[in-house]
Design a protein around this nucleic acid. Structure first.
Lengths: 114, 114
DNA sequence: CGGAATCCTACCTGATACTG
DNA sequence: CAGTATCAGGTAGGATTCCG
């Protein structure tokens, strides 16, 4: 199951929407969580998330980069080598991720109970 | 602009995804925020969110209801009267919304600076 | 190995009209 | 007033292929 989160025009500047838009992407939460555990190369994501295609991973990595959440270091070698890592701004997402995870856990338990 | 957040299978139980899936819907954040400010009738949402169609509002209200976040009280009168409100579970979203909002505000400022 | 271009599918959302 | 049914459109994500 998955959720669609349609990015809305943000006419009325809703801070909550801003954050959700940054996090909204099928693999973005997984990417961010992974980077909190250390620097990763594109190949590492493919291994960690075997169901994600390279195309979508590249796309979401680029979007996160455009949003200033992550950055990459490109090594000018052959074959190519690239490393992705969280920016300072990206690391400020820690409490957000914590809140989302905590609530999700509690929600799962409350659903089991009922 | 808006973002799609495709609801994913959640094979590996990722609590973060659980929460995002509950919040993912074009008008769900607005609906929840609104209900934190008090009980609302369907008509109120249409006034507060003039861009949202009744069809989508009804649908998202129903989904939030199915997820246990909100509930409604139906008055058996003519014309019909319905009131939506947050459940106890729904109110536990407060810290999540707070985290999302706070980060969004800080993000906006950091983007203005650059 | 990393990334981009192309084509395609799935599904969320919008518009409209109708029922109780 | 509240909710649903039907049809149509837009966009995120998937599959494949090619280039540096």
């Amino acid at each position: 199951m998955s959720s669609y989160h349609r990015k809305i025009p943000l006419k009325e500047d809703c801070p909550m929407e801003v954050t959700l838009n940054v996090l909204s992407g099928k693999w973005k939460p997984a990417i961010i969580s992974s980077l909190f555990r250390g620097t990763k190369r594109p190949r590492d994501f493919s291994v960690e998330l075997p169901e994600a295609t390279r195309r979508v991973l590249s796309q979401q990595l680029r979007e996160l980069e455009e949003d200033g959440i992550i950055a990459k270091k490109v090594f000018e070698v052959v074959p190519p080598k690239v490393e992705y890592f969280l920016t300072d701004l990206g690391r400020t997402l820690a409490p957000v991720i914590s809140a989302l995870s905590s609530w999700g856990e509690a929600y799962d338990k409350s659903r089991q109970a009922s």
